[in-house]
Simulated scan of single mutants.
Amino acid sequence: MSLVCNIEDQKGFVKQKAEALSLNIQQLKPMIKFLIMQGVDLPKLLEGTGIEQHHLIHRDISIDAFQHQRLLLNAIKHAPDMSFGAQLGVQDFINNDSLLASRVMSCDTAGEAMHLLSDYYKLWTNQFSLNFEANERWGEFSITPHIDFGATLPFYIEYLYAILYSFGCYCLGEKSVPLIFEFSYPEPSKSAYYGKYFSETVRFNQEKNRVLLPKPLLERKLVFSNPILAEENDKTVKTQMEHIAPSDTVSRTRALIQKNALSMVSLEHISAQLCMSSRSLRRHLQAQGFSFQTIVDQERHDIAKKLLSSNKQTIQEIAILLGYNDASSFSRAFKRWESASPKEYQLQQHQKS
């Protein structure tokens, strides 16, 4: 299976975009085989898809987004067991491996692994955004579709959830993990299988599709943790990501710096909020051409200009707010940024106004 085709919903059907990616028929065969083994009639499964039975003996036929979506709608209509999305997710986890999976497995902790997956998810799917944030109680891993999938959304969400849950249990060396799974859609008439493929706590009709991870779990060390392999795989993963999109570790680091008082900001403090080690955060930032101190200085620079322009606080007060020990240290830094002292900058802004 694969979740890498671009599709858009239109009047209940999905219309292929001009730039849509095609799938090789090999990627759909696991689902077709699985449903036939469950007793689904093959002609009914292929009805209206433009896929012929004889196509299934070939290995090099391309299937467009419309055909893929039509196949899913037929599968939902005729499948005797609606857990087929979750079952295929578990099978996908068992039968497939990837560079991204290897890189995530080699993380130090579960929290670091979740952040890494949200950074590099575009190597896995371009139909959804995966995002991870942590607070004092929970880690929240959310899955946001880029388009309206209509009746096929449960399949995709349960497929993704099953892969993530199976992968998580594997990396922690556990048969089950106490997570909370939330679904944006109503509870199906037959929902007993959710406890089998996910944890016992599932919630329907929620605002978004997300998984909640208890804070202690985020600090658990992964059984496959391997800093050396992680560093080696990072290079290849980042090279692949350069062809898709840059990592957003920099933006998340910047956002956390903005949320915290600059006088209290440190590499250790921010990396803890990102559920990774200081060394890992430093390595991620360096890979994007940044250092932690560079980002902190950029934020100090921007805030300093705003505060000096407002002329509501003394230079000493601004220095303390920005985390400097004294006004002299702040003045030296500001002169390096603007080639002018804080007082000179204030005067220039006053003259402009």
Rank of each mutant, 00 (worst) to 15 (best):
Q298D: 07
H301S: 13
F292M: 09
I295K: 04
H284M: 08
Q286G: 14
S280F: 12
S266D: 02
S280L: 08
A261R: 10
R300M: 04
S278C: 06
M276Y: 11
N260G: 03
S263H: 11
L281V: 11
E299P: 00
H301E: 11
R300N: 05
I270W: 01
S277F: 10
Q273P: 00
S277H: 12
A272E: 14
Q258I: 15
S266H: 06
H269L: 10
C275Y: 01
A272V: 04
K306W: 01
H284P: 00
S291G: 14
L274M: 15
K306F: 04
S271P: 06
V265I: 15
L307P: 00
A261E: 15
V296E: 01
S263P: 01
D297Y: 11
C275L: 03
Q258S: 10
V296G: 00
L262N: 08
R300G: 03
K306N: 10
K259E: 15
M264W: 08
K305C: 09
T294L: 12
M276K: 14
R283N: 11
R283I: 05
F290S: 07
S263I: 10
H301I: 08
L281H: 10
Q298G: 02
M276A: 09
L307I: 03
K306Q: 13
S309V: 05
T294G: 12
K305M: 07
Q293F: 02
Q288H: 12
I303S: 04
I303C: 03
Q273H: 08
R300Y: 03
S278M: 09
S266G: 13
L262C: 10
S266A: 08
V265W: 07
S309W: 03
L307N: 01
H269C: 01
Q293G: 02
I270K: 01
S277C: 08
L307D: 05
R283K: 13
M276V: 10
L308V: 13
T294I: 02
S309D: 04
N260K: 12
G289W: 07
K305T: 09
R279K: 14
F290R: 13
Q293T: 10
L274C: 08
L285G: 03
R300P: 02
S271G: 09
K305I: 06
A261S: 14
T294F: 07
R282C: 03
R283F: 10
M276H: 09
M276R: 13
C275T: 07
M276C: 15
V265H: 07
T294C: 02
L274Y: 05
K306Y: 07
A287Y: 04
I270T: 03
V265K: 08
S309I: 08
L308H: 06
Q288W: 02
S291K: 07
M276I: 11
H301F: 06
E268V: 05
R282H: 10
L274V: 12
C275D: 10
R282A: 14
Q286W: 01
T294K: 15
H284I: 00
G289V: 05
Q273C: 05
S263M: 13
L267E: 14
L281D: 04
R282K: 15
L262E: 11
S271N: 10
Q273L: 15
S277T: 15
E299G: 00
A272L: 12
V265S: 04
I257Q: 02
D302Y: 03
L267Q: 13
H301P: 00
I257P: 00
F292G: 05
M264G: 05
M276T: 08
R282I: 02
A304R: 06
Q258W: 07
K306E: 13
